[in-house]
Design a protein around this nucleic acid. Structure first.
Lengths: 114, 114
DNA sequence: CGAATACTGAGCCATGCGGCTAAGTTACCG
DNA sequence: CGGTAACTTAGCCGCATGGCTCAGTATTCG
């Protein structure tokens, strides 16, 4: 069985904030510095940095420092984790509709054999 | 522009907990009572109830009370919200690779015209 | 060298989360 | 009618989150 728990917790938690989702959206278009990423937000830099560190800790981005500038790069791996979870849910869902169909079929058979 | 913020916050936050993900998985297979849902978890009922209320408040489930039993039912609508966000990210991602390809092409053209 | 730029670290604050217990409330069973 | 079952309410606790300010540190520019 899949060991979902801990990994997915952070992956989803990271997405549960509009600032972080926006940052990921921006980074989808290419790497950027902290300053560039922070510019659109009406927020003090240290506050913004917490989001960056969060994204880094949960594996959504990597960063490297060049001179006094830190560049952030998207790591799209976590998208796959989400897709995997979603398709697992779909699988469960479909198994259910299969059973419902079976039930309906069985019921119809009973009706037919009356 | 899409007004992502508030709605998605809760949708993702709800998934950022293994108990709640497990409940959704179980409900994918069909509706169930609070007691049935809580059984697999080593947790006091009031604690578990908070998760149920959370899932309800974020729109993942609906509940109705019949006698002294409360039945919970999955509302799969939020899956669509997630899919929408994911495909938006893919769109951004692909626009980027397009630009990269264009850049490569342009560079090659330059090279070719040297 | 001195100043400006780009972060970074430390620490405060309010709120919310995820767990708990203890004490209701509301059906249903005998 | 009394008891048990199935939630439900209220309230406490510790920790994490998301914001802030104020004061560093480290590069780069003139």
């Amino acid at each position: 069985m899949a060991q979902y728990s801990t990994q997915l917790d952070g992956v989803f938690q990271a997405l549960a904030d509009p600032t972080r989702r926006a940052v990921l959206g921006r980074l989808g278009a290419g790497s950027a510095s902290i300053g560039e990423l922070a510019a659109p937000f009406d927020m003090a830099l240290p506050s913004f940095m917490k989001h960056i560190r969060y994204l880094q800790n949960t594996g959504w981005i990597t960063t490297r420092k060049t001179g006094r500038v830190r560049i952030c790069t998207l790591v799209p791996k976590s998208f796959d984790d989400i897709e995997a979870w979603l398709s697992e849910q779909r699988r469960i869902w479909e198994a259910r509709t299969d059973r419902l169909e079976h039930f309906v079929t069985t019921t119809q058979d009973k009706e037919a054999s009356k």
